[in-house]
Design a protein around this nucleic acid. Structure first.
Lengths: 336, 336
DNA sequence: CTGTTAGCGCTTTCAA
DNA sequence: TTGAAAGCGCTAACAG
């Protein structure tokens, strides 16, 4: 472990350690001879500046915290990768915390971020969107940007257009001629689920198709959840001719369930996913879905956070556009 | 932003800041009255200790670095989540760096970790396994544990049994009666690819089935790569009756390609994946695969790293067992 | 051009 | 039981 300090370099170059500091930071003026002597000493000693000591008197730690829901889900991972890429572009380090499913450990993580004096925090924790204490902490003690709503508001939110994520695919199905369109939703009680469902509902309304709560089935975001939800749905309403599944992983489960029931996609039932994960291109059949810019969302949130920290930008929320990806899991309803 | 310091608390409680330090760290003996006065002052002022200052004279920063290949791939994400979980259990913060595909920015990240004086580093960067400079740095300047081999060795490696990951599924196919068994490999030149292929080869040898390089096709680990590789493979060798695909994402592509060619799985061709991602349970048909304990690998590596740091353990490598998951994409070959 | 003085927030002796 | 002194590695301001 490197523990060569400025003083060590100074001793080797026979100058004061403050002069070394100047040279290494390119500040002040130093005699060329001294400078090169110092540079050489630093090089041969393998000097590496101590970022902690540096942060101690500066105002910035060049570090941000990311508190995220379990990022083994690919969409979430893409968010984080986007965040990390943008942070790195600005020479900012990222400390990460991954929450348990209920987000009950969020405050603990926030505390850690406080102790480490991060310059700001990016929240990607839908589970905490109704926790007032988290919202309070974020507003009072941090410069923060969130990818989901925050209890009590007051924190800039950067996210893909969730309502369009429901509206676009539903409209697509309507345009194909479907009228019995079911939806398999994400986790109940989450804003993002509400928004996607709201988009679905609005698309129906625009075409004067009645919303029917009996063909709205929760699927928990998981492959298995989507599989089970599809069975429950079709056990109850076999006249459904199309399903908008609120994420691709559940859609993979839905395709499997449909297949197990002897139903052909899209002939007997159309399916639209949401998210645009890589796998969706090669499901059987390839999945029509909504492309959500997860990576870009992470980048944008980070850029905003960094701009707010540096005073270059005022806090504001940003919504990113989503777009349809048409593949072969959707078609006009066939007479049966 | 909280910038209440020990001195502020001391002033409020009318004692010296050193006494406050004692109380807050539970050291030394302090009069009960003083103690409670200090505690109250700290509480009402919202004092949060500065971890950076604390690290400055201590020997540890309670921080580890993780340098990883792009973790938007679910297997990789699982590794990282495992690392994070274990670190958090030990109250250690995690700084993350995600490499570009070639890992050329690895040294830069290592430098950042050095500057931040992390206690140790976990490497998950197969792309750098042949970079001597990375190996050197790791050995000379860090306490490190890697999830992949490191150039020049000397760094403990914690990883799932890669050879078994090839041997077990191939043996399964052989036991079903297949003899024309192809494999779609991961990225060429990577150790993990070599190991999985070596396992495949060994299983064949054990049953005296000749290894045939013409039915070994590289697939780049991606869905699309697996799709394309399957087509290339079958264009060349249509007598293949089974394929061991070296990861589940490529296997999804393979199932799709097989379907597009009008081949039925498993009747016309059996497919075994590798990794055991959630999607594999609901592909069409559900995929027989190898379960790889990615989360546990991350946890184990972290526990080892932390133990090495604290001197509780000597550096050593650990191999974790993998296991078969039997589903419906494999069957005995059918006469055609 | 260079070194001195001061201090970031904290922990750790050591005296009082 | 408490506080004063010292120092972790560094930067910043100023004097020489």
């Amino acid at each position: 472990m490197s523990s060569v300090s400025l003083k060590d370099v100074a001793a080797a170059a026979d100058v004061s350690f403050q002069t070394v500091s100047k040279v290494l930071n390119g500040k002040g003026s130093v005699a060329p001879k001294t400078r090169s002597r110092i540079l050489e000493a630093a090089g041969s000693l393998g000097y590496v500046p101590n970022a902690l000591a540096r942060s101690l008197q500066g105002t910035s730690t060049h570090t941000i915290g990311v508190i995220s829901t379990d990022f083994s889900r690919p969409e979430v991972a893409l968010n984080i990768v986007g965040i990390e890429h943008e942070a790195r572009r600005h020479d900012v380090a990222v400390i990460i915390g991954s929450l348990d499913p209920d987000g009950t450990d969020c405050e603990r993580y926030l505390r850690v971020m406080l102790e480490r004096r991060v310059d700001g925090v990016i929240m990607n924790a839908p589970a905490t969107e109704h926790y007032p204490r988290v919202g309070e902490l974020l507003r009072d003690s941090f410069t923060a940007v969130s990818l989901h709503e925050v209890a009590g508001g007051g924190v800039p939110v950067v996210r893909p257009n969730a309502q369009d994520s429901g509206l676009l695919p539903t409209r697509h199905l309507l345009q194909l001629g479907h009228t019995r369109i079911a939806t398999i939703t994400g986790q109940a009680g989450r804003r993002i689920t509400e928004h996607r469902t709201e988009g679905y509902r609005r698309a129906l309304e625009q075409r004067s198709v009645a919303f029917d709560a009996t063909i709205v089935e929760p699927g928990e975001w998981t492959v298995e959840g989507g599989y089970a939800a599809t069975h429950r749905l079709l056990d109850r309403a076999e006249d459904v001719t199309a399903i908008y599944v609120q994420n691709d992983r559940m859609a993979i489960g839905a395709l499997s369930a449909l297949h197990d029931r002897g139903l052909r996609v899209p002939d007997d039932c159309s399916v639209v996913g949401c998210d645009g994960v890589a796998e969706s291109a090669r499901t059987i059949p390839p999945l029509t879905t909504v492309h959500i810019p997860f990576h870009e969302t992470g980048e944008t949130a980070t850029r905003l956070l960094l701009d707010i920290i540096s005073g270059q930008s005022k806090p504001r929320s940003i919504t990113l556009p989503v777009s349809m990806v048409y593949r072969s899991s959707t078609a006009s309803p066939q007479p049966r």
